[in-house]
């Protein structure tokens, strides 16, 4: 049963990767910016979960307000950081983004303290069993929530007029404008949705670990870059598959190769191997 356990653990991990990575790939698709500071927004979501729960006493309140607050923060990042430098070569917004990410980590340290925060009373510590497979309730929730939210996003993109306009803006922003699409609004929407999804991942990871520290986003920040490159930059479907694949690979790798290689190094070994064989990623660029 170890095999199934590892597979399930991998899917749980992969689901939270997917929630974070999708926002990153959406930003890349629309603006061709590697939005490193996205991982800082993920950390912000986790802090809101812990701090609001501890001070106001309601986890549900925290879980409900974290995504919209972080979504608005994402829109602010676009407006204040990226919009003024959109016509610069790509490395300029990349450097700005790395700078913002470092500032955010230091900001978290100054505001919430350097040692990390935990829930005063951990919510949802129940565990579930599905036949021989045991998991925490939060782990099951992570998978379900990721599938529901990403499924809803897929329906929005594929079946609605707004989603069609969104995809058109990704393909050819100038022509999209020529037919009356306000691409600035599309960008705000893009940052709002991507950041809100990262906040959901942050809330779930805070619950899973019952611990949030200023550098919570450091490892995800570069691991997410590996995922979106594997998925084909800007390709949403590819990114989701890459996120799940990496989660599963890490889960197995930790057990079977853990004595040789660190868990976080597995992601990059995988990235290097895939890019040697398929430089365009799993599915090619969007």
């Amino acid at each position: 049963m170890l095999f199934i356990d590892l597979l399930v653990q991998g899917l749980i991990q992969g689901s939270s990767y997917a929630l974070i990575a999708v926002g990153l790939t959406l930003v890349y698709g629309l603006l061709r910016i590697l939005h490193v500071a996205h991982a800082g927004l993920f950390t912000l979501g986790a802090y809101i979960a812990v701090v609001v729960t501890n001070t106001l006493g309601s986890f549900w309140l925290a879980a409900v307000i974290a995504p919209p607050i972080v979504g608005l923060a994402g829109m602010l990042v676009y407006r204040l950081l990226y919009e003024p430098i959109l016509d610069q070569p790509p490395f300029v917004p990349l450097i700005a983004s790395i700078g913002l990410f470092i500032c955010m980590e230091e900001g978290f340290r100054l505001i919430f303290g350097p040692y990390g925060n935990s829930f005063d009373e951990a919510p949802f510590s129940a565990s579930l069993s599905f036949g021989p497979v045991y998991m925490q309730g939060v782990e099951a929730a992570t998978v379900v929530i990721a599938f529901v939210l990403l499924g809803a996003l897929a329906v929005l993109a594929a079946r609605t007029r707004l989603g069609t306009a969104w995809r058109a803006s990704v393909t050819d922003p100038q022509m999209a404008q020529s037919f009356g699409i306000d691409i600035v609004k599309v960008r705000y929407l893009n940052f709002f949705i991507g950041s809100a999804l990262a906040a959901v991942a942050g809330v779930l990871v805070a619950l899973l670990n019952n611990f949030v520290e200023p550098t919570l986003g450091s490892v995800p920040s570069y691991k997410m870059l590996a995922i979106i490159v594997l998925g084909g930059l800007g390709n949403v479907k590819g990114t989701l598959v890459a996120a799940l694949a990496l989660g599963v690979l890490e889960s197995f790798g930790t057990i079977y190769a853990g004595h040789l290689i660190d868990r976080d190094a597995i992601a990059f070994l995988f990235l290097i191997i895939v890019l040697m064989v398929r430089p365009q990623g799993f599915f090619g660029k969007a």
């Binding site: 069609t164 995809r167 058109a168 393909t171 050819d172 100038q174 022509m175 999209a176 969007a286």
Partner: peptide, 11 residues
């Protein structure tokens, strides 16, 4: 300059 990834109807 069509939206190449979109269907005819979506264009």
């Amino acid at each position: 300059r069509l939206f190449g990834d979109l269907s005819v109807e979506e264009n």
